[in-house]
Structure formats: structure tokens, C-alpha cells
């Protein structure tokens, strides 16, 4: 069981790395869906048995992160009508290498963090940490608004992994509330992106720097 959980955790990190390295936005959205799929499976594995809480959470995650959010993102991409290429601020090779270093460091150092209670796997905290860092890297290292949304989603996925460590403390309603919040956030971001595209003719956030003191 622990081996399976470990493999799934590494898969989350790998899909994050793939999102950093790919130059195709649609492939990046698919990688987000893959992360969501893994995250939907994890609570069931962590709890060790299928119960209402785990099943509901898994179903909710599946519906939102694998279907609803990627659909919203693809629709936003289509409506924006922009180039499907990712335009990186930080080159692909540099971001992949930097991310690789960060992942290795977080796995190496994350084992030292003494998490009270028995976390389901010794890789949980390091992988969560690594995913958060990868999400931040995507957010900061890319210029297109859509990729910033993807970075935000990866960041939230990493935080979700941390939440697995305190699974018993969060009531189901709140977890679902968090998921809904993310869904609505992506929805609103899509709307704003559409407006940006209509006004600016592009969604390059680094060209939107007119407000300053």
C-alpha cells in the first residue's frame, strides 16, 4: 500500500515537472487533469478503506479537477484564441533543471521534518512541498495568464497533498467547499481572461504593466 501511495505521489510531482517542460498549453492542461486524477485516488488509498468521506472527496475531486476545471480551461483557451505555445520567462531547460534541484532538495530535506502522527507515507510531505514549489515556479516563470492559472492549480494541488496529512480533522463539507472555491476561482479567472483578451488582444501579463507609482 505504501509503495502504491509513493508511486502516486511521485506521479503528481512528475506531472508538475512535465507542465514546466512542455511548450504546448493543451498538453499542460491534460497534465493538470492527470494530477487531479491521482489526487482523487489518494484519499481512498490513504484511509485504507472505502468510506463515505473518502469516496465523496474522491468523487468531488474527480468531477472538479479532472473534468470541470480542464474543460473550463480549454474553453478559455479556445475563446482567447491565442497561440497555443507557452511563452516562458524562464527558459524550459532552466526551469526544468531548477525544478529538478528543488524536488531533490525537498525530498532530501523533507524527510527530516518530523510530522506528528503517522503520515500515510514518508514521501507525503516532501512531495507536497515539491509540488507547491513547482506551482510557484510555473506561476512566476511564465507570462501568459492561462499558464499562471495552471501554476495556481498546481500550487493548490500541492496544498491538497498537505491536507491529506490532516485528513481526519477536516470535515467533508469544508473539503468540498475548498474544491468549490477553486472551481469558482478558475471560472472567474476565465471570465477575466476573456475580458483581457477582448481589450488587449493578448493574454500576456508581462505586457500589462502600466499601473505603477
Amino acid at each position: 500500500m505504501e509503495g502504491a501511495i509513493d508511486t502516486l505521489l511521485i506521479l503528481v510531482v512528475l506531472s508538475g515537472l512535465y507542465m514546466l517542460a512542455t511548450s504546448d498549453l493543451v498538453a499542460a492542461i491534460r497534465a493538470t487533469a492527470l494530477q487531479g486524477l491521482v489526487l482523487a485516488l489518494l484519499p481512498l488509498l490513504v484511509r485504507g478503506h472505502v468510506d463515505l468521506h473518502g469516496a465523496a472527496l474522491g468523487a468531488g475531486t474527480l468531477a472538479l479537477k479532472v473534468f470541470a476545471i480542464p474543460t473550463l480551461l480549454r474553453a478559455a483557451l479556445r475563446r482567447a484564441g491565442v497561440n497555443r505555445e507557452v511563452e516562458p520567462l524562464l527558459g524550459f531547460g532552466a526551469s526544468l533543471s531548477l525544478a529538478g534541484v528543488l524536488v531533490v532538495l525537498s525530498i532530501a530535506l523533507g524527510q527530516r521534518l518530523a510530522v506528528p502522527g503517522a503520515p500515510p507515507s514518508s514521501l507525503l510531505v516532501p512531495c507536497a512541498f515539491a509540488t507547491v514549489l513547482i506551482g510557484l515556479l510555473i506561476l512566476v516563470g511564465r507570462t501568459k495568464a492561462l499558464t499562471q492559472v495552471l501554476g495556481y492549480l498546481v500550487l493548490e494541488n500541492g496544498i491538497f497533498l498537505f491536507g491529506l496529512a490532516v485528513l481526519r480533522a477536516m470535515p467533508l463539507i469544508v473539503e468540498l467547499g475548498v474544491l468549490l472555491d477553486i472551481l469558482v476561482a478558475v471560472f472567474v479567472m476565465g471570465i477575466v481572461m476573456h475580458k483581457i483578451r477582448r481589450t488587449f488582444d493578448h493574454i500576456d501579463t508581462h505586457a500589462m504593466t502600466e499601473l505603477r507609482d
Binding site: P116, G163, A165, V166, V178
Partner: peptide
């Protein structure tokens, strides 16, 4: 949210509950 999860971890005793 991460901070909230950390509070939850801080409240977990070594037995895991």
C-alpha cells in the same frame, strides 16, 4: 490554507489522532 493545514498538523498528537 497551507497555514491552516499546519495548524491541523500541530494539533495532531504522536498517536496520529
Amino acid at each position: 490554507l497551507l497555514g491552516i493545514f499546519f495548524v491541523g498538523i500541530a494539533a495532531t498528537d504522536p498517536a496520529g489522532t
